[in-house]
Write a protein that binds this DNA or RNA. Structure first.
Lengths: 351, 351
DNA sequence: CTGAAAGCGCTAACAA
DNA sequence: TTGTTAGCGCTTTCAG
C-alpha cells in the first residue's frame, strides 16, 4: 500500500518578491522603494520615481511584508482577543464588533481560544510571543502573575465583560449588580411578592452579580427570594427551572415572577410552563430575561429583559486599549456600563 | 479647555528582552540561546547550559519573538480566516471550530472581516501582507484575479461553504442541492402534494442550491412548487412567509408542506402560522428546516431538518489546507459533504 | 531627492 | 557542544 502523501512533491515555499527586487528592477535603491510605500508623513520622493516604482511594484506584484515591518517597528498592529467561549449571542456579537472596529482602526485580530481545561497561561503567552500590540480578554480574568507578564512585555490588556476590584487590570463590564437590582425593583414595583431567580452558570461572575442585585432589591422591600435554580445558557435549563418551581408544588407556593439570568433560559421557562403546566405568562407568572436577544421580541415571548449595549461596551474597551497603547498608563480604569431595562408584556402589573 | 490626552506622557514602547540579553546574562552566545528554545530536533546542548539559560531566561522573563522567527523562516504559523458575517449559528460554530482546531495544529488565527460594501480586495491583500501561511475563505468566492494574487504569493486558499465549478480554488461545501433534493423526496414520500419553499437570502448560493434540489425532486414527481418566499435568516422572515402563503388565500390553496431554507425561518413560520391563523403543525401543514440548530429540538418545534456536519466540514477544510501548505498542489479539490436528514415530528406522514 | 548602511530578533550553516 | 556569521525584509538615520 502506497501512502498517497509520499508520492507528492514536498513543497518549499518560494521567496516572495521583496523591496530589493523592486528596487533592482526599477533601478533605484531599496530605501527609496520603502519610502514610496510609506510616504504618508511627508517623505519626499519625486513624482517620477514614485511612478516608476509603483509601476514595477505592480508588475512584480509586490506588497510590503507586514512581518518585517513589525520586527523593525516593534509593533505588529495586531490585537489579540482571548476568547472563553462562543456559547451565547452576546459573545458572538461582541467578537464580531471587536474585529470590525479594530479593522477600522487599522488593526488586525488574532483570535485565541482558551482551552476547555482552563488555564490561560499558554494562550496568553502565545499572544505575547506574537508581540501583539494589545490584548482583549473576554469573559475571563487575569491572574496577577499573568498580569505581571503582560507588564514586563509592555503589552496592554483590557478585560471585557469581567471585572475585579482587586486587580490592576483595566476592565469594561456591564453593571450586572445594578441591572439585576433594577429588574428586582421593577418586579416589586409592579406588585410581585413571590420572586424567583434562574441563574446562568454558577461560576459566572456576571450571573452572580445579577443575582446579588436582585437579592438586594428584595431585601430592601422585605421580600424573600422564594426559589432559585442554577442552570446553563440553554433553553432546556429554563424548562428544568419551570419543573423545579412548579412540579408537585401547590399553586399558592408558586412564584409570581421569575427573573432569568439569560433570555434563552427565559424562553425555555415560558415554553415549558405553558406547555407542561398550562400556566399563563404573564397572567399567572411574570418572566424577565437578560440580554435582549432577537428572541425577546418574538411575539409569543415579548420578553421584558435587560439590554446590554454591546456597541458601547466594545467602543469603551477599544478606547481604553488605544489609550494604553499610545500613552503611559495612569491609574486603573474600571468602567461599569449600565444596562437598559426593556419593558415588554412578559411582566404584568399586579397592583 | 485642556485636552486630557495632551497632558499624558506619550508612550514609547520599550524594547523587549531578546535572546541577546539572555545570552549576555548567561555568558553564552546568542545562537546557543536560540538552540535551547528550539531543541526539538536533536540540537545538542549540554544539560548544564540548558539549565543555565532556562534559568536566566525565566529571570529576565524572556520569550522568543514569533515575529522575528517568522521573518527568518518565511512562515508565520498564522492562518487567515476571511469571514463574511456572523449572522447564523452555522458561521459562529464554524469559526469556533476552525480556531480551536488550528490552535491544536499549532497555528494561530488571524480573523479578517469582509466590509459590508463588499469588495474583498483589501481584506485579502491584508492577509497576504501578513504573510499568513494559508487562507480560509468562509461563505465567499474568490475572483480569478485575486486567486492569481494568492498564487503569486504562494499562499494556499480553501473556500468553505461555497464552491464554484469554474474555479481553480479548492473548496469544501455542503452538498446543498442533494440536501434540498432529499428533503423534497422525503416530503413527497410522506404524501405531500402542495409543497412550498422559504428561501434564505436570495443571493446566497447555498439557498439557491437548496431550492434547486427541492425543485428537481418536485419535477421528478410531477409536482409543482406551489409557493415561495424569499427572506433573511430571521424569525420574522418566517412569519412573513406564513402571511404570504396563507393570508387571504383559501384553505385548499394552502401548501401542505413548507421547506424553509433555515431553521430560524422555520420557527418563525411555525409560530406565526399557529398564532395568527390557528394552523396546526404538522397536521395542517408540515414544516422542514435546515441546519439542525438547538431550537430544532425544542418541543414545540421538534423540527425535521438537515444537519450540517460542521465538524467534518471543518476537518476536511483543514486537511486540504495543511496539504496545500506542505505539498505541491496537484489538481483541484471540490469536496461536497452530504447533509443528514433528521426526521422529527414537524413533518407528518399523509399517506 | 536619493543612496548607503545599520539594525530589529531570530535561525541555520559553517567553524572550531 | 558551542561560537561566529550571514541573512530574512523592512525602516530610518546620515550623507551626499
Amino acid at each position: 500500500m502506497i501512502e498517497k502523501k509520499k508520492m507528492v512533491k514536498r513543497k518549499v515555499r518560494q521567496r516572495r518578491v521583496s523591496s530589493v527586487d523592486v528596487a533592482r528592477e526599477a533601478g533605484v535603491s531599496q530605501a527609496t522603494v520603502s519610502r514610496v510605500f510609506n510616504r504618508t508623513k511627508g517623505t519626499n520622493v519625486s513624482e517620477e520615481t514614485v511612478a516608476k516604482i509603483m509601476q514595477t511594484a505592480k508588475r512584480l506584484n509586490y506588497r510590503p511584508s507586514v512581518i518585517a515591518r513589525s520586527l523593525q517597528q516593534n509593533s505588529t498592529n495586531i490585537i489579540g482577543i482571548i476568547n472563553r467561549n462562543f456559547e451565547s449571542n452576546f459573545h458572538m456579537q461582541s467578537l464580531d464588533m471587536f474585529s470590525r472596529e479594530l479593522q477600522k482602526l487599522g488593526y488586525s485580530t488574532l483570535l485565541l481560544n482558551l482551552p476547555e481545561d482552563g488555564t490561560m497561561d499558554a494562550t496568553l503567552h502565545l499572544a505575547l510571543e506574537y508581540q501583539v500590540d494589545g490584548i482583549i480578554l473576554t469573559s475571563t480574568m487575569l491572574s496577577s502573575r499573568l498580569a505581571e507578564d503582560c507588564i514586563s512585555y509592555d503589552t496592554p490588556v483590557v478585560q471585557y465583560n469581567r471585572y475585579s476590584l482587586y486587580q490592576e487590570v483595566d476592565s469594561v463590564c456591564l453593571d450586572n449588580f445594578k441591572a439585576g437590582n433594577e429588574v428586582g425593583k421593577y418586579l416589586i414595583e409592579t406588585g410581585h411578592k413571590r420572586i424567583a431567580f434562574v441563574s446562568g452558570r454558577k461560576e459566572s461572575s456576571t450571573s452572580i452579580d445579577r443575582r446579588l442585585g436582585l437579592i438586594h432589591s428584595l431585601d430592601e422591600a422585605g421580600l424573600p427570594l422564594v426559589a432559585e435554580y442554577t442552570g446553563e445558557y440553554t433553553h432546556e435549563s429554563g424548562c428544568e427551572a419551570a419543573d423545579a418551581f412548579i412540579h408537585g408544588i401547590s399553586r399558592d407556593q408558586w412564584p409570581d415572577a421569575v427573573f432569568c439570568g439569560t433570555d434563552i433560559a427565559a424562553t425555555g421557562f415560558i415554553d415549558h410552563a405553558r406547555r407542561a403546566y398550562g400556566i399563563r405568562v404573564p397572567e399567572d407568572i411574570s418572566v424577565a430575561g437578560f440580554d435582549d436577544t432577537p428572541m425577546a421580541t418574538w411575539p409569543q415571548y415579548d420578553l421584558t429583559t435587560v439590554m446590554q449595549p454591546i456597541e458601547t461596551m466594545v467602543q469603551e474597551t477599544l478606547e481604553i486599549l488605544m489609550d494604553l497603547i499610545k500613552y503611559e498608563k495612569s491609574g486603573v480604569i474600571k468602567k461599569m456600563i449600565p444596562g437598559t431595562l426593556v419593558k415588554r408584556s412578559s411582566v404584568i402589573d399586579r397592583r
